[in-house]
Amino acid sequence: MEIWQYDFMQRAFAAGMVTAIVCPLIGMFVVVRRQSLIGEGLGHIAFAGVTGGYLAGVYPAVAAAGLTVAGAIVIEIIRRRHSQYADMGLAVVFYAGLAIAIIFSTLVRIPGAGMLSFLFGSIMTVSQTDLLLIVATGLVILAVVYCFFDKLMLIAFDEDVALLAGINTVAVNMLFSIVTALVVVTGMTVIGILLVSASMIIPVAAAHVLKLGFRATMIAAVLISVFATFSGLVLSFYLDIAPGGTIVMTSVSMYTLMLIGQAVQSFLSKTRRRQLVLPAQK
């Protein structure tokens, strides 16, 4: 196939698959911890990191990783200290990130295509260095999820119960925040800063419709994400449009179809039940 003949597409698919796997893995915990908008906030900080990278002459993805991790640590500290107004802290960091990005972008001349590729994602701009960074970060994220799965699940279930079980919830929560920041940076290149958060949340939302257990929901979310990313990249190549939009819209379509399927199934089972009751009443 023509699509596989290009080196840039091979790199885009490799980077896309890593992103497709790690986004819902962390997204599952983000959703059950009721922090669905954290990716959005971290994306804005990543944007500030990218513009700051251009300004300081640092590789943009590396600068974004550094600033996003720092932002995630600040968000976690605010969340812990002001648990009742945790979203307020997120909003402050969210807007601060955006403001810094705007200031930096006016101080340095960034090529228009470069800026747009970070905002909307691009299959053309995944360099060999980007791919290496994405694979390395992806492996770190997978290792953290594998080693801390039970602890993360217990904390998401009930933080007090986890604390009583002797888990250092402060340390694990901080680690989780850092890993979430890394996921945002990993997904930034292919999906784009504006939609990377959607890749963490929408496959998980679609998998939730299936009403499975925790692990099974997570696996289903990864499969949905991989399918959406693969289809989205193919569509992006042939239609010549930004991959972030096609990947996310494929996920949204799958979520919508699942909701329709669920509604139809519920309607049919109600009708069947009514048919069983009526003869009995006669």
């Binding site: 059950v32 911890r33 009721r34 039970d150 699940m153 217990l154 998401a156 279930f157 009930d158 119960v161 986890a162 009583l164 079980a165 002797g166 888990i167 939730h208 499975l212 257990g213 925790f214 692990r215 929901t217």
Partner: peptide, 19 residues
């Protein structure tokens, strides 16, 4: 969170063991 947690009964009780 607990009542709406997306996990099976088996998974929740297992959390008590691994804790």
């Amino acid at each position: 969170n607990t009542a709406a947690f997306p996990a099976t009964v088996e998974e929740v009780v297992r959390l008590g063991v691994i804790a």
